[in-house]
């Protein structure tokens, strides 16, 4: 068990430099990459950002939500509502969906925060189901069969298809970078310390004067903000929305598997998990359900044998942290039944 006081390490400085170079290279993709590559990268960016946000919730905030698809779908529907009924510029719906998602997350938090621990997880899922079934009832939004983005709204992004693709690409890249940087800065701040304290021991942190409720609420709202904004972006790329796809539990399934396999409770973990997910998905896509079964079995095995995930194994072995934030202190685990 290592405890760190120093944030900056040699590995982290190298990591930051590599990240900076990588971002610069990724910025240039629209000038040399083909359309398929860009589409794949956009998907990687938004899944990575979603995974980071879920990791913030569960890995740091202790809020294991199984209902984040509520905000993905909400963001998607906000895109359509803002564009079609309020004539907002398509790109501008992304930050607006984020803000509105954060506002709507408040009453949701009021309800689901009444459920403690394990029950919170399923409570969030119920909320997502309510959104799914509720949006399916709204005739103006196409009911259960959903709706498509008007051509004019798509054209408003940019005149040519290449420019549109590039704009969406940069937007997705910007979101992913902003989410990772934001979480990194948050965790290194005073709030990050409070979050780590809560995760390690709710009671101890309370006795230290940390306001658990406020800290958790803040994390919940931040995750809702980010997830809703990403939801709007996702449906800019998809153009068509249906309630059953937008509020699909499989969004959260994918995210959870990525975070668990990569390593929960670290910023590197979701990055590793996302890379593994997409690397394996390409060759295993023809096997469909077997790929999900494989992911499920892997996630169970990782949770049992290496609860800090693949990144946890790697960083413990080589004592490396690319994004060093306060680490978790492991206390007595000898009382576990087996």
């Amino acid at each position: 068990m290592t405890s760190r006081v120093v944030h900056s390490t040699r590995a982290s400085r190298i990591g930051m430099s590599v990240a900076a170079v990588l971002i610069l290279v990724l910025l240039t993709v629209p000038w040399w990459g083909d359309r398929a590559t860009m589409r794949l990268l956009v998907e990687i960016f938004y899944i990575l950002a979603l995974a980071q946000l879920w990791n913030l919730l569960a890995g740091y905030g202790g809020l294991v939500s199984v209902g984040q698809q509520a905000f993905i779908g909400l963001g998607g529907y906000l895109l359509f509502i803002l564009v079609i009924f309020l004539d907002i510029g398509t790109i501008w719906t992304v930050p607006m969906a984020g803000i509105l998602g954060a506002v709507i997350s408040l009453p949701i938090a009021f309800i689901v925060f009444r459920l403690r621990g394990h029950y919170f997880a399923i409570g969030t899922w119920v909320v997502a189901e309510v959104f799914l079934l509720g949006f399916a009832q709204v005739k103006a939004l196409g009911g259960g069969s959903g709706m498509s983005l008007p051509i004019a709204a798509i054209k408003s992004i940019a005149a040519s298809r290449a420019d549109r693709d590039a704009t969406i690409y940069w937007l997705a890249l910007a979101l992913a970078v902003a989410v990772i940087a934001g979480i990194y800065l948050l965790l290194r701040s005073r709030y990050g310390l409070a979050l780590t304290a809560i995760r390690d021991s709710e009671e101890a942190s309370r006795s230290l004067g940390v306001d658990n409720f406020r800290a958790k609420l803040m994390v919940f709202i931040l995750a809702a903000f980010g997830t809703s904004a990403i939801g709007a972006l996702i449906y800019i790329t998809k153009i068509r929305i249906t309630p059953s796809a937008a509020f699909d539990i499989n969004w959260t399934v994918t995210i959870i598997f990525i975070v668990v396999i990569g390593g929960i409770g670290s910023i590197e973990g979701p990055i590793v998990g996302t890379l593994i997910f997409f690397l394996l998905r390409e060759p295993l896509a023809p096997y469909g359900t077997w790929y999900l079964i494989l992911l499920g079995v892997t996630a169970v095995a990782v949770m049992l044998k290496a609860p800090k995930g693949l990144w946890g194994l790697f960083s413990e072995r080589f004592d490396i942290a690319l994004f060093p934030v306060q680490r978790r202190l492991l206390l007595g685990t000898d009382d576990k039944p087996g």
Binding site: G117, I256, G296, V300
Partner: peptide
């Protein structure tokens, strides 16, 4: 820790 039982049963559910 609340995470392992939740995530393991979640994984089992998908499997």
């Amino acid at each position: 820790d609340l995470l392992p039982p939740l995530l393991v049963t979640f994984g089992i559910s998908i499997v």
